[in-house]
Design a protein around this nucleic acid. Structure first.
Length: 483
DNA sequence: TGAAATGTTGGGGCG
DNA sequence: ACGCCCCAACATTTC
């Protein structure tokens, strides 16, 4: 196996796969060929969903990191701005590359664009190869027996698990051959991913983007928390969660690597790792969300259940702002929304609670919630975000029934029993003793004053009465159902 | 991957 | 000892 220094280089186009290990496009392109790793910043090619502010912050650091790792292998990351097709053609022209390799993406606007790029490159004599780097089961490989895509999670996941298990992850290349001519790279700062980002302090304290940290996170989660995940995953203030979501979104770690790590750790634990593992089941929900987004490409803007198209959502800008800023007067909701602002993340349990509050208690459209999450979450992911919001508001596949409305007080009692989560994010309520910290508006006046709480001043009154708004939502949803 | 209303049961206090 | 009431603790039903 000699090194064919004379052979033409191949372009490896990095997208949502900012890693070196288990990267099929990189692995295959680098077999006996010089490669040119490339990232192209073209946010306006992502339809209605260019990366939000939190995502851009992450991306900035992820790209810095990927470049560093590539340099460790004698290569580097070439950065360019879009339009993507023009950039790829220019890179090929400048470097003499004869092929472009990438791992597939599945968002409707992006996969259409990718198809156009592929057709055009081929027509211009440039070879294109694409691979599956991001999913365990690509959307077109799973279907109901009678044909057609799944719309219910459990049979979907069952069908996936009945297939051959995912392939073993690929190793990272040990060394990368350099091309004879390196195309010039733009500076990362020219993308302005950081511009106007005023939350960087909290983000830096919470996250370390990059492949290495993703691996560390996975290892430590598997060794410390995997065993207790089934219970811990609902404990809103615990440290039993994997916090892998942004790493997975940007492809700093792939699902095959996670699968393998979980399987290895569960071996000899007395149950079949994949089928019954609650953590892999969460990965299954991610697979399901990509399945749905692929087969129902309109769902980021339109409810899957058409009945919901005419639902009369409130357009109450002040209520939406209160929710966004963590000023609803409901401690659990406000704590979660403040964590979201500060860290760009919140636990899944908290996401369900705040989403239920927005769409059912406030009757504000799931699309307004999805848009806010899109801009503020470091793990904002079109498939997961769409499924999550449609699921909670009841208009999606396998959705929560319309009458399932979370009571944020009960949720706090169950999943933050010590009130530590509320403590952490709402300092104004710290001195309020326990049952009242979940529902300060019911606390006796003397208890409030002793705790230094002045409702309406140091902490808001509830935006809506929980019981009233619950009944209102039930009535409206029921009415829609009958029409 | 609910919550609240309603129904049932069983133990203890009490006349 | 017995019936009655109260009420927690569950279970079931309904939205």
């Amino acid at each position: 196996m000699g090194r064919h220094q004379s052979s033409a280089p191949k372009i490896v186009w990095f997208r949502r796969d900012l890693r070196l290990a288990d990267h099929p496009a990189l692995f295959n392109a680098a077999q006996n060929h010089p490669i040119i790793p490339v990232f192209i910043w073209a946010p306006d090619e992502e339809g209605d969903w260019p990366p939000g502010a939190a995502s851009r912050w992450w991306l900035h650091h992820a790209l810095t990191n990927l470049d560093k790792s590539l340099r460790g292998l004698g290569s580097c990351l070439v950065l360019r701005s879009g339009p993507t097709l023009a950039a790829l053609k220019a890179l090929a022209r400048e470097s003499g590359a004869t092929a472009v390799y990438w791992n597939r993406r599945y968002e409707p606007a992006v996969s259409e664009r990718d198809q156009r790029i592929e057709d055009d490159l081929r027509a211009n004599g440039i070879d294109v190869e694409s691979y599956n780097g991001s999913l365990l089961y690509e959307p077109w490989t799973v279907a109901k027996k009678a044909g057609g895509p799944f719309q219910v999670f459990t049979p979907f996941w069952k069908t996936c698990l009945a297939q051959d298990p995912p392939a073993a992850p690929l190793p990272a290349p040990h060394v990368l051959q350099q091309p004879a001519i390196w195309p010039r790279s733009e500076g990362l700062d020219s993308f302005s991913l950081h511009a106007h980002m005023n939350r960087a302090e909290g983000f830096c304290a919470s996250w370390n983007p990059g492949e290495k940290e993703a691996q560390n996170q996975l290892k430590s989660f598997v060794s410390k928390s995997l065993r207790s995940y089934a219970e811990a995953r609902d404990h809103i203030n615990g440290d039993g969660l994997s916090r892998l979501s942004p790493h997975v979104h940007f492809g700093e770690i792939g699902p095959r690597q996670i699968w393998k790590a979980v399987e290895k750790a569960s071996r000899g634990q007395g149950y079949s790792a994949a089928k019954d593992n609650p953590f892999l089941r969460q990965l299954g929900w991610r697979e399901f969300s990509y399945h749905l987004l692929f087969h129902f490409p309109h769902t980021p803007q339109q409810p899957l259940r058409t009945r919901f198209k005419a639902f009369p959502w409130e357009s109450d800008a002040a209520a939406l702002t209160a929710w966004q800023q963590g000023q609803t007067g409901i401690p659990l909701v406000d704590a979660a929304m403040r964590q979201l602002w500060c860290e760009g993340w919140m636990p899944n349990r908290a996401r369900m609670v705040v989403a239920s509050y927005l769409t059912k208690n406030m009757l504000i459209s799931w699309r307004d919630g999805a848009a806010w999450f899109w801009d503020t979450l470091v793990d904002a992911d079109l498939a997961n975000n769409t499924l999550g919001w449609q699921w909670t508001s009841g208009c999606g596949a396998d959705a929560a029934p319309y009458f399932r409305i979370f009571n944020p007080i009960n949720q706090a009692v169950k999943f933050d029993p010590d009130g530590h989560y509320i403590d952490r994010w709402i300092p104004a309520l710290r001195k309020l003793p326990l049952p009242w910290r979940f529902k300060p508006w019911e606390a006796p006046p003397q208890v409030l004053s002793e705790a230094g709480v002045a409702l309406g001043t140091t902490y808001p009154e509830p935006w809506v009465d929980l019981r009233f708004s619950r009944e209102r939502a039930l009535a409206m949803y029921r009415q829609m159902r009958q029409q």
